[in-house]
């Protein structure tokens, strides 16, 4: 039981970490909390559905869906956020809300208000046994994919020139530009990475939910926002730590609270977030250059 719940917590925490990281990457560079991040997930979900309906093999469909998420993020930056560059944080925030609402309505009216079932391959609902506890294939994939994505991102940021430039931009964008690195490229890469993470998270999310619907982006972006704030806004390690912390607390409470108190779970989680922020106002692992949204 305990081992099982630990696996549940790590699996959920991993997905939250991917989501929070997607928000944090963009925030660290442009100071924007992109509330349309959830709609990138929705878009990837629909792309997966469309690919499967068109008869593409499952791995190809996943690839198409994740690519769609990444490209959509770049397009979003180009169309909605680039004209707003240099605008105040409030304007950027409102722009992201506008993009989010717009996309939701487009999904509802253009596709369907009804959730669409996504038939996951049969092996994904399987489970394998280790001694006296069983691990679902779904959660195992979640854990592996989250871990691989986090490692890959870390390698990219540490080893590549663009990655180094991005880390530098997070500390002081103006100096990076003075070094002759084009701002647009850095920002576009940040959005591309956040879109990739959104696409990956969407695959794990949809695999667990078996359906996509126009409003499915709301909950994940909210969780990601909480995780990013708890971890320290703009700090990438902080986003990962915040994501795992949130996942672990949620599973722990769901597992241990008696049924009569369980409905207050979210209230308890959010009280915990307030407590963390009272003790560490800049988050668990604060960003080098602290900004407030």
């Amino acid at each position: 039981m305990v081992a099982q719940q630990i696996i549940n917590a790590v699996s959920l925490g991993g997905v939250y970490a991917l989501l929070a990281l997607g928000l944090a990457i963009v925030f660290s560079i442009v100071g924007l909390i992109n509330f349309a991040h959830g709609e990138l997930m929705t878009l990837s979900g629909y792309a997966l559905l469309a690919s499967l309906v068109l008869g593409l093999p499952f791995p190809v469909a996943v690839l198409v869906a994740v690519t769609c998420g990444a490209l959509a993020a770049v397009a979003m930056e180009r169309i909605a956020f680039r004209p707003m560059r240099g605008a105040s944080v409030t304007s950027l925030l409102l722009t992201s809300f506008a993009v989010s609402s717009l996309l939701k309505v487009v999904f509802q009216n253009g596709i369907s208000a009804r959730p669409q079932a996504v038939a996951m391959p049969g092996w994904m609902t399987g489970a394998f046994s280790f001694g006296d506890f069983t691990i679902g294939v779904g959660p195992s994939i979640s854990i592996v994919v989250s871990a691989l994505a986090l490692i890959a991102l870390e390698v990219f940021l540490r080893r590549s020139v663009t990655g180094t430039a991005m880390r530098a931009a997070a500390e002081d964008f103006d100096v990076v530009r003075l070094m002759g690195i084009p701002a647009s490229r850095i920002i576009a890469t940040a959005f591309l990475l956040s879109g990739l993470l959104a696409g990956l998270a969407a695959m794990l999310w949809v695999a667990q939910r078996a359906s996509v619907d126009p409003l499915m982006g709301f909950t994940p972006v909210l969780k990601a926002f909480i995780a990013a704030v708890v971890g320290g806004l703009g700090s990438l390690p902080g986003a990962v730590a915040g994501g795992f912390l949130l996942g672990i607390i949620e599973v722990l409470l769901q597992a241990t609270l008696p049924a009569t108190i369980a409905p207050y779970r979210d209230a308890i989680v959010l009280s915990g977030v307030i407590a963390v922020l009272l003790l560490r106002p800049q988050g668990l692992i604060p960003a080098v250059r602290v900004q407030r949204s």
Partner: peptide
């Protein structure tokens, strides 16, 4: 037994583990 969920909740794993237990 009784269990609860929040609508829109992403993850049912803890509740399911409780059912199994």
């Amino acid at each position: 037994g009784r269990g609860t969920f929040t609508m829109g909740q992403p993850d049912f794993s803890a509740e399911i583990t409780n059912i199994k237990g």
